[in-house]
Write a protein that binds this DNA or RNA. Sequence first.
DNA 1: GTAGGGTTAG
Length: 662
Amino acid sequence: MATLGNPLASAPITSNPAILTANNDQKTNPSTVPVLIDKCASKKHLKQLHAHMLRTGLFFDPPSATKLFTACALSSASSLDYACKVFDQIPKPNLYSWNTLIRAFASSPKPIQGILVFIQMLHESQRFPNSYTFPFVIKAATEVSSLLVGQAIHGMVMKASFGSDLFISNSLIHFYSSSGDLDSAYLVFSKIVEKDIVSWNSMISGFVQGGFPEEALQLFQRMKMENARPNRVTMVGVLSACAKKIDLEFGRWACDYIERNGIDINLILSNAMLDMYVKCGSLEDGRRLFDKMEVKDIVSWTTMIDGYAKVGDYDAARRVFDVMPREDIITAWNALISSYQQNGKPKEALAIFRELQLNKNSKPNEVTLASTLAACAQLGAIDLGGWIHMYIKKQGIKLNVHLTTSLIDMYSKCGHLEKALEVFYSVERRDVFVWSATIAGLAMHGHGRAAIDFRLLETDSNNHGAYVLLSNIYAKAGKWDCVSRLRQHMKVSGLEKEPGCSSIEVNGIIHEFLVGDNSHPLSTEIYSKLDEIVARLKSTGYVSDESHLLQFVEEEYMKEHALNLHSEKLAIAYGLIRMEPSQPIRIVKNLRVCGDCHSVAKLISKLYNRDILLRDRYRFHHFSGGNCSCMDYWASSLIKKEASHLDGISLLNCDAKQMYGM
DNA sequence: GTAGGGTTAG
């Protein structure tokens, strides 16, 4: 992190009495600093106190600097950028300060920074993570929703002997659940000897949100049998499970249980009860509760409106909408628009959207635009659809996967295949729904063969095909709940590639290597061998191709380092160590070999005079004398990818036979 | 001196 000089030393002093006291007394006792900091009500005050502390040297009293930094990092009045500048000025931040910085980033709009600060702490400071560090950094991993990052942190937790820490375990349950890996979540849960209420609640909520309401209810029953006392968070999970299962009977029982056990009802719990009644089709019970609620928020209003609209009672929905408080009600507009659109009333959906356009109090958001585009698609309303696309560009709204899918679908159904492909190629993130919409568009326009060739070429996981089919089946049947659940489930398990894994057989024993694996007994030798290989390759002019990396790897050293962790490289290195020069190195990889590894394998075959046979997900590669039997399919496919940006159809004419080596 | 779990609209 950059170090800031002392730009604040001449900052004016405010009339705030606390600060005046500090300014007038140049020898302020460090013990008064906490009081002064606590009295800072704004970023301006914090800056003034910061300037004062620098001027008087008080900033170099470690507890005082830590206190100031904590106030900057955690105060809502301050900005995190400023907190970082303060942090950079602390000569040797203590572990508490590192933890605070990670914690602040974890709940900020840039959680990835929390991970990077954690990595920086490991590399640059003499500090070791403690039982507080891990919950913070796991929270950051949850927000980033990166399974790989979380798994790596979990590994560190175990290595640092924090595996039995309750707070850390609970954080991990939450992390794995929200990443869609319920098996791992449950594994962590089951290993906790003395589970507390948060352990139970995290696992119950995890099951519900992961699309397993039945398991959530079973766990609730087990929880009671084990004499753990459910609280209102538990009951939110239980009610949510009933809503998802459409189990009115159990839902009613849960409401009764809350009453009987004197569980404190707050707004969130009321909303969960309301949602359960509405989803289970009992609008009467829902309305009764809704009318009884003294405090309602946007969720309450939206739930009620959506409930009426979903059963087709648009008049009742509209009546609720018309009497609700007018601030920040875009979600209520969305409930109306999406219900009309999903119930085959696209014209009405567009009428509501036009009404919204005239309204000065609400502004369409991504959800509004996606629903409206869907209505445009149904109607073939290309003008409005095109207008929305322009609006998205003008407003600088980033295309998320929902919006991308809706735009592609709208353009395809309105007859503009080129525009649909243009959108497809313009986005970085393409989930299965984006692919599916594009394929459907191609098929719709008579490019059936092209549609089939399209992804088969691109996808890395066999599972994707099943997801596409399943989602199409759900979508065709109008089962939007299922589609939505599938999306959630795929967020990690389907869409993020499964971790790369390469295996090699040496003397009849199969050795498996995961990406970045260091569990092998010869790990140290393997990594040394890799270093040696890279050094030799570099001497011949080899430059690593970093386009095959996760996006969050930003630093140059880390980029190169991360590429060297690929499983196939580890397996090759192991083969070079353990196998006779005359023996070919045979490797099987679960995914398609990455371009950089492909180049490296070719060079190794020449420099080390070794034959390498690598079977990846799609084909065999026989590396020998610096060449590969695939005739560099990798390179040619990348060129085709590039060309495809200029001409979408050219990619589609690739011969699948070539791809599969048939 | 620091920590973990919850509701709506796509």
